[in-house]
């Protein structure tokens, strides 16, 4: 019973979710997907949400609220921070999960507002490519970054 997160597809008389399961009358929104790809995406959003609760909120606390916030962020700050495999792993996991969670979130939104399948496929294809490119770029940077190319920046 996904009372809060899913959109309505209310019809006069009977209502059913996208998989054909009838919905009880008076329940707003779409039923929780019971199986198939949509179920796994539904579960992924919750599991990644729990992990992102710590990774993203922790990132905000450290980078935006701690110390003087972004005021102190410069090349030396990142180089010093990324000397630790913990922060490289943290940032890479945050990158991966946030992109997947966000791109799937956009896809769920297009299911509600973009009716024509061709247009929807084009929009989602575009965001998928953007997500893949940014994931690849971020992964390359976080893995290959080597501050020894610029001596003297690490305090």
């Amino acid at each position: 019973m996904a009372v809060d997160t899913e959109p309505s597809s209310e019809q006069s008389g009977h209502r059913a979710d996208s998989l054909g399961t009838p919905l009880p009358r008076g329940v707003a929104g779409r039923a929780r997907p019971a199986r198939g790809g949509e179920f796994w995406w539904w579960l992924f959003m919750r599991v990644s949400g729990i992990v992102l609760l710590f990774l993203a909120v922790g990132h905000v606390l450290i980078m935006h609220l701690g110390g003087s916030g972004v005021e102190r962020v410069n090349f030396g700050f990142v180089a010093t921070r990324w000397q630790s495999p913990l922060w490289r792993t943290w940032d890479w996991l945050l990158l991966s999960l946030a992109i997947l969670h966000g791109i799937n979130g956009l896809r769920v939104i297009t299911l509600d507002y973009v009716r024509r399948p061709g247009v929807r496929l084009t929009i989602n294809g575009f965001f998928t490519i953007v997500g893949l490119v940014l994931f690849a770029l971020g992964t390359i940077v976080v893995v290959t970054f080597d501050p020894s190319k610029w001596p003297g920046v690490i305090k």
């Binding site: 309505s8 209310e10 707003a28 929104g29």
Partner: peptide
């Protein structure tokens, strides 16, 4: 029902 989504 498009355009009047969710409505909880």
């Amino acid at each position: 029902g498009y355009g009047r989504l969710y409505r909880g």
